[in-house]
Design a protein around this nucleic acid. Structure first.
Length: 872
RNA sequence: GCGGGCGUGGCGGAACUGGUAGACGCAGCGGACUUAAAAUCCGCAGCCGGGCGACCGGCGUGUCGGUUCGACUCCGACCGCCCGCACCA
């Protein structure tokens, strides 16, 4: 290799490894990204937030994508004159830290804070314009202590309840399992069959706000439609009626059974009543009827896995008891059925097989009666009755009521109204709105979470920890060798005196669901060290978050809980936020995917282990062993199709990684990470730098007034400003990238060395530096410092303004069609009259040929766009 | 089953409010530079047909139909893929 040649080459290259840390330091020294505690009002505020990471150990490409998107927005908005809040922190409580403690003997706190240190370093290398002074981790006592204060206020305000609820109990490990730790009905670690166990737990009363949480979805016009839909479905509002059916004999004190139905209009088509296996009346019946008891026990043992639930056949058992339908006074059998859920409605239904598919399946199986009461439009009553003698498909649409006494002849909606009136008159039921959403259970029997600040006293009951005693800190000396919750078997921690009566009492040993931690962190960022949960001046000035960015996997729970929290915080005086909505704008980014590779033995290979040859064949690096190239899938450790962001930054620099991630496709879609794509991005970084470096010697001095003469490059410059601006405003980052590629081509093509072109070249290069800045901030600074030494940082510059007269074309190219088919184009002055345009169009050679011998019937002219001749 | 989204070259994708489909990039091909390679630069490139050629014609945005002077864009039906929810009464 020719060494001198190589050095010459290296000197003419942009060195990201040298440049990027330099500019990161320059931004830090100038405190470019520090947000004011309270915006001073001279500039509008803009709060950009990306979902904060769980400190799992290393950052991954999903983080890189997420934080790059947010950083583009933050830098762009800052340049547009906004006071920008762009903070970062850590969602630091959670199970993996406890697993590390159990598996490797590392304390959860140590593991977590070590990971945070690593990941903070990785994020800093990306050159993100974050205000690091606001950083916190949710496991900082300073943070979770304020969370405990919030909880106490919620408790006092009646937004918290204590109720019994089922948990997944692992009898071998003696521990509660999260749903994802239950695999095929067994504990993931012990393999023991998981039991449903009832425990007293804390609940946030999210259902108290359900109306507003649903209605306000309509106002979130900067949220993706599908997220709003998912929330809407999750909340699940349905209108119907509760109806009480008198039991033929009292059962354990109960004289009737209440059902919920959305189809009270079909009450005359009733065939049976079905109870959930978990219904209290079922429990009472089971005590005296072994058949019922046996059936209930059978339901308990299956039904745990979702797959089993889906495919489970409808089964039931007749209890021998009957109920009376309040409308017609007839008796119907009471069954216990496996498909009736205790968690929804009243845990009991009335069965109308003709108009509900599940009820029909059930009725056919047990030969129960089927009476049609809603006649489809245009159907003959007798024929319809005949149909139901054997049909397996229920009729669930609208129609006209039949066989229904006073409802006969009414349409379904009317019949519903009428029957509810009647039920209310009879005091046998009432119209109700039913919700699918249930209260949010927040108790977790775990160590690494925020302690729930209450004390259980035998005499006083549940006593809140006085605020002066907050935070209730997690003890450090915990034993993970024993199964179960370390807080529960800690020798001293839970033993405290009751704050009310002073007698020995017991601390709550449950900790909060980690979704609680992430439900208000965006508010805490506005005053992260404040001695109460929020500083009203700061939080009211900064909220709502103007642009929230993260993965679709949080579309329901995290966002819904946060929406609940801001409302609850408003009710308890911690913020005002009139809309109640924490996130005015939401953007959900797609996943980062990569090809998968396997060696001849079927083992997964990392992309770094694979070499792709020119002919497309893939081999294991350094060998001749063939590699099987598999599908492009979401990056995952198990499939080893991951690319380490650190390695990419080492090799190419952060700007290249950012640029590639933005350029590949629209940010809401899944992207494929490819080596060729990164290399292409790296090429552009060099090209832009070379374009600038190569032109430096010929540029006029900075600030020279524009000389006389035309330079077409100026039009490119100002059109690019307009184009990139429009693209960034619309989150079309891939389009912004394309405009900048075009611009680089235009700069390279403008070869003239006259004064006007040289001046335009400086303007173009300076503009390019500023327009790439949101996406490639380090390169932007480097270019700017070459073009304007000593002129400060791009990060502090306003966004370039497009000159409207240069954006507007002086000539326009107009397509000319004959009968809608393109026959040619003409170029005319921008202000040309219609007559001139039409004349030029008819004169165009190819158009003239197409028009020859035809009669023009109509001339359509859309100024600046098109001419179309209709001929015959 | 219910709800939602998406179908454009070899690939990712672009296209304002219905107005030149395929911008830009990746991969590819040809050329220049080089002893050679890398890097870089210049050029070609939807498909089919015709012409030595500048070019010309036809077809073309999942399929079929409709509205319109004109449809990737609007409407209807269908096909395919993806996502969410799901025994919710």
């Amino acid at each position: 290799m020719d060494t001198t040649h190589d050095i010459a080459r290296d000197q003419a290259r942009y060195d990201a490894a040298d440049s990027e840390p330099r500019w990161q330091k320059a931004w830090e020294d100038a405190a470019c990204f520090a947000a004011p505690d309270v915006p001073d009002g001279t500039r509008p505020k803009y709060y950009v937030l990306e979902m904060f990471p769980y400190p799992s150990g290393r950052i991954h490409m999903g983080h890189v994508r997420n934080y790059t998107l947010g950083d583009v927005v933050a830098r762009y908005k800052r340049a547009r004159g906004f006071a920008v809040m762009h903070p970062m922190g850590w969602d630091a409580f959670g199970l993996p830290a406890e697993n590390a403690a159990r598996e490797r003997g590392i304390h959860p706190a140590r593991w977590t804070y070590d990971n945070i240190a690593t990941m903070r370093g990785e994020l800093k290398r990306m050159g993100l314009s974050l205000d690091w002074s606001r950083e916190f981790a949710t496991c900082d006592p300073e943070y979770y202590g304020q969370q405990q204060a919030l909880f106490l206020d919620f408790l006092a305000a009646g937004l918290v309840e204590r109720k019994e609820a089922f948990v997944n109990w692992d009898p071998v490990d003696g521990t509660v399992l999260a749903n994802e730790q239950v695999i095929d009905g067994r504990g993931w670690r012990s393999g023991a069959l998981v039991e449903r166990k009832k425990l007293s737990q804390w609940f946030f009363s999210i259902t108290k706000q359900v109306d507003d949480l649903l209605a306000a979805l309509e106002t979130l016009d900067r949220w993706p439609e599908r997220v709003r839909l998912m929330q809407k479905n999750w909340i699940g509002r349905s209108e119907g009626a509760r109806v009480r059916f008198a039991l033929s004999e009292p059962v354990a004190g109960a004289v009737d059974v209440e059902v919920f139905t959305t189809r009270p209009d079909t009450l005359f088509g009733m065939s049976f009543l079905a109870l959930s296996p978990d219904h209290p009346v079922t429990a009472a019946l089971a005590e005296r009827d072994p058949k019922v008891a046996e059936f209930v026990a059978a339901c308990r043992t299956e039904g745990t896995t979702e797959a089993a639930l889906e495919t489970a056949e409808k089964r039931g058992v007749d209890t021998g008891v009957t109920v009376t339908n309040p409308l017609n006074g007839r008796s119907y059998p009471v069954w216990v059925a496996n498909f009736v859920l205790m968690e929804y409605g009243t845990g009991a239904i009335f069965g109308c097989p003709a108009h509900d598919q599940r009820d029909l399946d059930f009725a056919r199986k047990y030969a129960l009666s089927v009476t049609p009461v809603v006649l489809p439009k245009g159907e003959d009553a007798a024929a319809f009755a005949q149909y139901f003698s054997g049909a397996d498909t229920a009729f669930t649409d609208d129609g006209t009521l039949i066989n229904s006494s006073f409802l006969d002849g009414l349409a379904v909606p009317e019949a519903k109204r009428r029957v509810i009136e009647e039920l209310e008159r009879l005091a046998a039921g009432q119209g109700v709105v039913q919700w699918r959403l249930r209260d949010w259970g927040v108790s977790r029997q775990r160590y690494w979470g925020c302690p729930i600040p209450v004390i259980h006293c035998e005499g006083c009951g549940i006593v809140p920890v006085p605020k002066a005693d907050l935070p209730v800190r997690l003890p450090d000396d915990v034993d993970f060798a024993r199964p179960g919750n370390p807080l529960d078997h800690h020798p001293t921690w839970k033993h405290v005196d009751c704050p009310r009566c002073g007698k020995p009492a017991r601390r709550e040993t449950d900790t909060f669901d980690t979704f609680v931690d992430s439900s208000w962190y965006f508010a805490r960022f506005t005053a992260p060290r404040h001695p109460s949960p929020t500083n009203r001046d700061a939080v009211d000035a900064w909220l709502p978050v103007d642009q929230y960015i993260g993965g679709i996997e949080h579309a329901i729970l995290h966002l819904l809980y946060s929406r609940f929290f801001t409302r609850a915080m408003r009710d308890t005086g911690h913020l005002s936020l009139p809309s109640g909505e924490p996130f005015a704008g939401l953007f959900t980014q797609g996943m980062v995917k990569h090809e998968t590779y396997k060696d001849p033995d079927g083992r997964w290979l990392y992309p770094t282990e694979v070499e792709k040859r020119q002919d497309g064949l893939a081999l294991i690096k350094g060998t001749n062993q063939p590699v099987t190239v598999g599908a492009v899938e979401a990056m995952s450790k198990s499939k080893r199709n991951t690319v380490d962001p650190g390695a990419i930054i080492d090799r190419y620099g952060a700007d290249t990684a950012r640029w590639f991630i933005l350029s590949d496709n629209p940010p809401e879609r899944d992207m494929e990470w490819t080596e060729a794509g990164v290399a292409g991005a790296a090429r552009f970084v060099q090209r832009l730098w070379r374009l600038c470096n190569g032109a430096l010697a010929t540029l006029p001095a900075a600030g020279t007034p524009a000389p006389d003469g035309e330079a077409p490059l100026r039009r490119s410059t100002h059109r690019t400003i307009a184009g990139v601006t429009e693209a960034l405003e619309g989150f079309a980052f891939n389009v912004a990238v394309a405009r900048l590629y075009e611009f680089a081509n235009a700069i390279a093509d403008a070869k003239g060395d006259d004064a006007a072109t040289a001046w335009a070249r400086r303007e173009a290069l300076e503009t390019a530096a500023r327009l790439v800045a949101p996406m490639m901030p380090h390169l932007a600074e480097e270019l700017w410092s070459m073009l304007r030494p000593g002129a400060g940082l791009v990060a502090a510059l306003p966004w370039p303004e497009a000159d409207a007269t240069l954006v507007a074309a002086d000539t326009v190219t107009i397509a000319v069609q004959v009968l809608g088919k393109l026959r040619g184009t003409i170029t005319v002055p921008a202000g040309a009259s219609e007559a001139e345009v039409l004349a030029a169009a008819e004169a165009e050679e190819n158009v003239a040929r197409a028009l020859a011998g035809k009669t023009i019937r109509k001339r359509i002219h859309v100024p600046g766009r098109i001419v179309n001749f209709v001929v015959s």
